[in-house]
Amino acid sequence: MPLHRKDLLGLQEVEPDEIRLILDTALSMKEVLARPIRKVPTLRGKSIVTLFYEPSTRTRTSFELAAKIMSADISSISPGGSSIVKGESVKDTVATLQAMGADMFVVRHQASGAPHFIASQVPAAVINAGDGMHEHPSQGLLDMLTILERKGRLDGLKVAIVGDITHSRVARSDMWGLTKMGATVRFVGPSTLLPAEVEKLPVEVYTDLEEGIADCDVINVLRIQLERQERGLFPSIREYSSLFGISRERLRAAKPDVVVMHPGPMNRGIEITAEVADSENAVVTTQVTNGVAVRMALCYLFLGGAANVAAA
């Protein structure tokens, strides 16, 4: 039951059996995270490069911790402290790093498709850690792992993703992954924050919060980017919060045991109240832990190289 690809660029093209393999492997990795000494020798001598053209703390740290727990060597490249500021092209940067012996690139870029370009240039595995408004597959996988742990299944669940869908690569990865595994996905938000041609996506669309989360098993609350307001996509933070903020009262529309997720960092009091964020329903810190487990699984599975990829 191997993977069918060299790179993880998005969940749109990944098969359900691959998702199942990654989630099963990640569940096993959680045992390593629970040990007093969190280190296994598996990836000794493997070299992983994180190449982040966009700032990130949690995703990058999560990948770095995962790689270190698995004993891989990790190098972190970001534009500020590298030859990228001297005008080197992406193509030359990755060619240089490949020549140094990188086995895997973890890439974040503001342009959708940048990881695809890099993947076409190098024999190393490329993991997309967020590209433009396209996908953030490892976040989608950690969200699925968190739901699977809480609910015991993905199939048949109703999952509402609430907020700024247009600008959210998390929403897209969640949508592709969850629908492949048999869940129903709803996009909930003001119409100005719903993507163009949303009717072509495999989702139900709601512009009313209470209708959107009615009877849901899971709500994924997206971070509202305050700078969007300046562009006139919603009138005021206060209005957004009153119409789409997730509060204890609002949550009553969903199932009593609804799982509330947030990819972080949270704007407490805007898209989610502190009361909900700290409640039994919220699984925000579990998501963070599961992120490390999922990335350990990705390092393990995608560093296997050709041996692990089924013959095309």
Binding site: L21, D24, S28, M29, A297, Y300, L301, G304
Partner: peptide
């Protein structure tokens, strides 16, 4: 996670 043949063969990781 402790096998000596990671480069050629990847065993499924089960839960310890």
């Amino acid at each position: 996670l402790y096998r000596d043949d990671f480069a050629t063969r990847q065993a499924p990781v089960g839960k310890t």
